[in-house]
Amino acid sequence: MSYIYLSFLWSDEGIYAWVAANYALGTLGGDPQKTVGILELGGASAQVTFVSSELLPPEFAHSLKYGKYTYNLYSHSLLHLGQNVAHDSLRELLLSRDQTSAESSGDGVFLDPCTPTGYTHNMGFWNLSPGALNGKKNYLPTLHARGNFSECRTAALKMLQKGKEKCSYQHCHIGNTFIPKLQGKLLATENFFYTSKFFGLPSEAFLSDLMLAGQQFCGEEWSKLQKKYHTVNEEDLQRYCFSSAYIVALLHDSLGIALDDGRIGFANQVRDIPLDWALGAFVMQNMADLEKEHSDWISAILSSDSATRFSLFIILFIMICTVWSVMKWRKPQFKTIYDLEKGRYIVTHVTR
């Protein structure tokens, strides 16, 4: 067992995930235009990383060298736009959006199009903001579930576009965040993948397939969904209406991916290699160590006589081939731990 210590930034997660995906696909170390972009949808944040030919603002531009190629990446972490946090934020938006009409009716009831009809919300478990509580300590509003995919999608898009009027860049497809036009093939991972898998969609499914599945799910009665998906936790089950609508609002309505675009695939692994940022961190760490070893060997070679120099070149060549072969074919497992004392992540690696 070995440990890799990383000084981790949110922006690094997308870059390491991109490295992991292209390493697993065999495109890392090759033509930048043949690499695959990565779209991650976690619980708290979303990541967008891909090779871009556009001139990028410095805060979004990342230059990554691997082998003989340098990859000019756009990478950004969209904080608070992960699936779970976005779901909570949307509920608060729904509560505040119709507050005036709800108060005038005197019943404090708000409509929730992102949850199948018949589901009962337990508002007591929510960590609502003072605004959602209408400024009253004992005030507890009611969300009435009325599943409607189109309305949920519209509400999700409104949330994604919040703050767009403050955009100071040429492209702000999500809020006031600069995102250039997506280029090349794309892999949608984590909750993108889990949602498509829940609906039984293949990895090469179109967004239109997910939209159709979401429309059917959102429009179904909660009691029927419980019977159909009786093995799924109820709290998780009710989220799939929102999840499907949110994904379409994020990928199609915001980032401009066509509903029938064949460039995008939903996956969480390639063959049996997980598309995890920890794998990308491991690959880059190994590459850095390898380059250091090469540098030390070259220094030794240059200071040797010709006969010794030739022998060292042969040994170096064999070592490079061996290390490259091992890195390409071994299948590492990872466990990621955050070291509170050191304030950084520790990636635990076990080679099988």
Rank of each mutant, 00 (worst) to 15 (best):
V326K: 10
T308F: 00
I315Q: 15
P332V: 03
A300R: 13
A307W: 01
I337H: 12
K328P: 01
S295I: 02
I301D: 00
P332D: 06
S295E: 15
W329F: 15
S295F: 10
S295C: 05
S303A: 14
F310N: 01
K331Y: 05
S306N: 05
S299N: 09
I318M: 09
H294D: 07
T322N: 09
F317Y: 14
T322W: 08
K335L: 08
R330C: 08
I298D: 04
V326S: 07
A300K: 13
I301G: 02
L302I: 02
I337F: 12
I314G: 00
W297Y: 09
M327H: 01
F334L: 02
Y338M: 04
S304N: 03
W329C: 09
Y338C: 02
K335I: 04
S295P: 02
K328S: 11
C321G: 10
L312G: 12
D305N: 05
I320Q: 09
W324L: 11
E291N: 15
I298P: 01
I318R: 11
M327C: 11
E291P: 01
K331N: 09
K331T: 09
Y338I: 10
F313H: 03
I298K: 11
H294Q: 14
F334D: 01
V323K: 08
H294K: 13
S299M: 09
L316W: 05
E291D: 13
D296A: 13
R309S: 13
W329Y: 15
Q333N: 03
T308G: 05
K328Y: 01
D305S: 00
Q333K: 08
D339W: 02
C321V: 11
I337R: 10
S325I: 06
L340T: 13
S306W: 01
M319P: 00
R309E: 05
D305L: 00
E291H: 12
Q333I: 04
E291G: 07
H294E: 13
S304P: 05
K335C: 05
T336Y: 04
L302P: 00
I320V: 14
S325F: 13
H294L: 15
R309Q: 12
L316R: 10
Q333H: 06
I315G: 00
S303V: 13
D339H: 05
D339K: 03
A300N: 10
W297C: 06
Y338E: 03
C321N: 12
I298A: 08
T336Q: 08
I298F: 07
T336E: 06
K335S: 05
P332C: 06
I314T: 05
V323Y: 04
M327G: 03
C321A: 15
V323Q: 07
S303I: 04
E291K: 12
S325W: 11
M327V: 14
I315W: 02
S299Y: 08
F313S: 01
W329N: 12
S299D: 10
S303F: 02
K328V: 02
W297S: 10
H294P: 00
S304M: 03
